[in-house]
Amino acid sequence: MPLIKNGEFADDNWILVGDEDELPADTPVIVSAARWQAERETLLGRNAPLGVKLEAGEAPELIADDLDRFQLVAVNFPAFKDGRGFSYASLLRDRYGFDGEVRAVGEVLRDQWSLMVRCGFDAFDVADGTKIDAFKEALGEFSHVYQATGDGKKTVWQLRHGG
């Protein structure tokens, strides 16, 4: 699956490892929160970057104390309608100050990308055949925003008053 990071296609060095799969050596891996909790010491003993994947229903609070151990948090969208991940990304960035990669995986619509970026996602697993122009176009559809998020964009409310 192609990866878009910071608005461009990027190589994906990460391997998503199932709970029963063997951990590959010296390769960045993404594990489930459950596996992280069960195999914490083993995972910390590896000599490669570590990522964790949050399922819908697993709020970031679950891993909040360990966030400095991860270079990546993947947030899964089991269906595009399931918007819990939007709040998870907001919390990861704004509350817990996570500055690694926050990647959206699962079912994501084109029309959700711009909202997701505002919530703090900087990487997206996208469908084969996705064009980078479509991504850029989607992100450029709106010139202004009314709400403040962690992306630091000036809101309409700020701009109106000399911002």
């Binding site: 595009f80 309608k81 399931d82 918007g83 939007f86 709040s87 907001s90 959700q112 711009s114 909202l115 997701m116 505002r118 919530c119 709106f142 925003v145 009314y146 709400q147 998020t149 309409v156 409310w157």
Partner: peptide, 14 residues
């Protein structure tokens, strides 16, 4: 109205 228009976090609620 303004705050809720295209709210990035709350557009795919339950």
């Amino acid at each position: 109205r303004q705050w809720s228009t295209f709210h990035p976090e709350f557009t795919f609620l339950p």
